[in-house]
Every structure is written in C-alpha cells, then in structure tokens.
Design a protein around this nucleic acid. Sequence first.
DNA 1: GCTGTTGTCAACCGAATGGTTGAGCAAATC
DNA 2: GATTTGCTCAACCATTCGGTTGACAACAGC
Lengths: 117, 117
Amino acid sequence: MPETDPLSATFAALADPTRRMILARLADGEATVKELAEPFDMSMQAISKHLKVLERGGLIARSKQAQRRPCQLEPLALKQADDWLEGYRRHWEERFDRLSDYLRKVQDRESDDGSKR
Amino acid sequence: MPETDPLSATFAALADPTRRMILARLADGEATVKELAEPFDMSMQAISKHLKVLERGGLIARSKQAQRRPCQLEPLALKQADDWLEGYRRHWEERFDRLSDYLRKVQDRESDDGSKR
DNA sequence: GCTGTTGTCAACCGAATGGTTGAGCAAATC
DNA sequence: GATTTGCTCAACCATTCGGTTGACAACAGC
C-alpha cells in the first residue's frame, strides 16, 4: 500500500486482530518487540512487520534504547479515526431512537393485549 | 479475506478513500449502483466490488427494486467501530491534557520573561 | 419480441498482504 | 574477543485486493 492517505493507512492498520491486540497491550504501556511477540504463535519478524504497519498508520511511535526498540501507543491517529466516525454518529443515534420508538410501541400494544385478556 | 471477524471486516472496508466517499454519499440517502459509480472514473463493476466489501463490513444494506439494487447506510457497524475506539479515548484525551499543561507552562515562563524584561 | 438499462459474475492482471526462513547488525555479557 | 540477545532486512510464497474486460441476467419500454 504505497503513498496511501493517512486515514486509510490508519484504518488498514486497525483491520487486523493481531495488530489490535498489540495496541491493547501497548495501552498498558511501552513494550519491546520481543514482549509484544510473546503471546503470539508467530515469528518475531512477522510481529516486526505488523509494527511497521502500525507505525505507517501513525498508531505507534518507536524509540531506541540499546539494541531494544520499544514501542508506545500514539493516540493521535486513533483520535483522527474517531473524528471521521464522528461525522456519522447522528446516523446510529437516530437509528437507536427509532428502535426505542418501535420497542415502546410494541410494549404499548402488548399492554393493550394484556388489558383485553 | 475469508471468514474474518466483523470488526476487521469493518475497518478493512473503511481503509479505502473510494469506499469512504461512497459512505459519505449514502449518508445523504439511498442510492443505486449507477448513481454511486457516477462521480468516479471507474467501471461499475469496480464499484460493485467496493459495495460488496462495504456489505461484508456491515456498513451498507441492499434492497431490490426491479433491476435496481439500491444501497443504504447501515450505521451499526460504524457504531461498533466507534465503540472499539472508545476504549482508547482516554489516551488521546490524556495526551491533550498534557499538551495543555505544557502550553500553560510555556506561557507562564514567557510571562516571567516578560516581567524580567 | 427486440432493445436499452442496471447490475452481477467470471477470468484475468499487477501489486500488496501476511506469513515463512536465513542472514546479518549492534549492543550487552561472558 | 567470542557469544548471546534483540531486532531488521531480503527473498520467497500463497493469498487477497483493486482494477480491467467480456458475457450475461433481469427488468422496462418501445
């Protein structure tokens, strides 16, 4: 995925359960590649690639201490994904409202049935 | 991408500018494949494929009227993506708070400098 | 019953993804 | 200085992606 726009790179990085688990781990604080690879049945090289995808998506930042290359969460990209979703919030809230209306009506009708019985 | 988990399918569907533009169009209301393809310099087959990806991501629903196959936004998947992001909200809010603190400190220091001048 | 419109399916293509193994680098340790 | 540890790079592989073209199905209108 060469020269993609930032938002696409972010969403693409999020579209993988392994990478989302890595992010979950990083939410608890900095970690090295070794530590991140630990829980997975996968080579460290594979994890290294996942980290590169996360980095391109702006989701993590990497530092350098000795031969270790610790990663930390970079929340700005997450916020930008959230900002994009924000533009659609009213859609699911409206849908939720309609659902509530419907449930209320159904309940009213059931109450009527009950009174007739 | 076979038998992916729903959240991954949703994020993957969002990771393409064409598909996000399609969603933006659908936010204004139902549209046919032809109408959706209109603004793009791309075959209708390509759009049809994008729609299939969006459908697999749970982002759109399709009905059937005559030979037309209109699409509409399905906001639940967007909400679920948002719910996932919700778990990280505190991270970017904390970061924002730290930035505010920093800016406040810088401003204080500049005020000191000013008083010394 | 033709003809045009709308849309999908199938096959193909080049590029990207997600994994592997093997080699190698750089810093810490013996 | 030799070895181990932590990590990346390069090459390879199968699969998926994003687009194309061509054929065709289903319905509408003449």
